[in-house]
Write a protein that binds this DNA or RNA. Structure first.
Lengths: 214, 214
DNA sequence: CGAACGCTTGAACATGATCAACTCCGGTGG
DNA sequence: CCACCGGAGTTGATCATGTTCAAGCGTTCG
């Protein structure tokens, strides 16, 4: 799903030739990075959430981003999407000007941007299906599969608080708690610290999730 | 939200120079166009729905497309998104090969594709907020605002059956019926034929919807 | 005109939200 | 090192919203 980094598409030499400068930044967990539209950066390590905020303050988490993902849009957008770090996160930032320049000069960069935009849209659509049709049980199962996708057997740290997981899944925090409790009771997963999760019965978890592509 | 057509970016002369050929097709309502990934076409007139289908047959409508929108992706995708016409629809189709060629040769085309991909992602994210947080009443209000966006005062034909509206909004068809009934009873909208809807009290409808950007 | 489909309406039901109490853990300071 | 404090998480009980099932209505089209 997440392919190669935008950064990786460009060798240091090429970046220099394009007069593009990068800068590294490290942020602590819970750091509000503001509107995505104002950013141009690669995520080197860590995790963040992208949220929409209604006027009344209600938040909706619309996507999660991890190492290798790109943050930002080619131009400022109407819809304000806010990025907040979920863990200590290191980014590799470009200036908007340099980014736009590189985009116009270096075709593979734009091609990759298309790919990423489409992938983001696919993730959102997959989640639409979930929020439209799935039970709480299914949603939680899908979430665990999502979070543990690349670590089989090993415990994985859930990068969100219960409340955030709930928000992401369109549920109440208590419901998430209960469903996790059920899955644990059934021996499908283990939970220590409420944050570190291990999948014991992957097959069964898939059966519960049923919607294959998140 | 929906800007200029991809088609419009290219003059006939340029298309010819790029060795791109187009063909026009007209489809009746309810025509299944199959996987979006296999298509490359502009919508000249009409309307269609894009759906995801779970293995068990459950459908989720993830987007609606209208005249001026573009249908298709630069390459075949993992996620299968099915397009179905909702009314008689005319498209202007390219061959995938020609499309890819034009994309590589003509930079504005790729720029526009990025724009469209991001816009699709924004629509999906807006809908995520709705499905995550909104009551049935809000959802139906938002839907009417969406459908009647560019026709103020005049009656607008809802391009979906109740069941489809419900699917789009993550509700049951009966719930949509009831909410429409309430709004009609309150004098916010009128409904004739169950398909043709007029907004009487736009301000109040906005207040009910509350989430501004769909 | 009649049949079929789509829409509406009603009543019972189920699922998840909400509210509130309680527990657990992690960090802090005595 | 232990006790305490506070935030996060869990659990239980009640409640509300929307779903489901079923019947009836209307409209659209053969």
């Amino acid at each position: 799903m997440r392919d190669t980094s935008l950064c990786a598409a460009l060798e240091d030499r090429e970046l220099a030739a394009l007069h593009v400068s990068r800068s590294r930044h490290i942020m602590p967990a819970g750091y509000p990075m503001g509107d995505c539209g104002d950013l141009c950066a690669n995520i080197v390590s860590g995790a963040l959430k992208l949220s929409l905020h209604a006027k009344d303050g209600r938040e909706q988490i619309v996507d999660l981003m991890f190492a290798g993902d790109f943050l930002g849009t080619p131009r400022v957008r109407e819809q304000i999407v806010t990025a907040t770090t979920l863990a200590q996160t290191e980014i590799c930032a470009f200036s908007r000007h340099d980014f736009a320049h590189a985009l116009d000069t270096f075709p593979p960069m734009r091609r990759m941007l298309v790919e990423r935009a489409i992938a983001a849209s696919e993730r959102a659509r997959g989640r639409l299906r979930m929020l439209g049709h799935s039970s709480a049980r299914e949603r939680v199962a899908v979430f665990i599969l999502y979070i543990t996708a690349h670590a089989d057997g090993k415990p994985v740290r859930i990068p969100l608080r219960r409340e955030e997981v709930a928000n992401f899944l369109g549920l109440a925090a208590e419901t998430v708690s209960r469903q996790l409790g059920h899955l644990r009771a059934e021996g499908v997963i283990t939970l220590v610290n409420a944050r570190d999760c291990t999948v014991l019965d992957h097959e069964r978890l898939c059966a519960i999730a049923r919607s294959p592509n998140f």
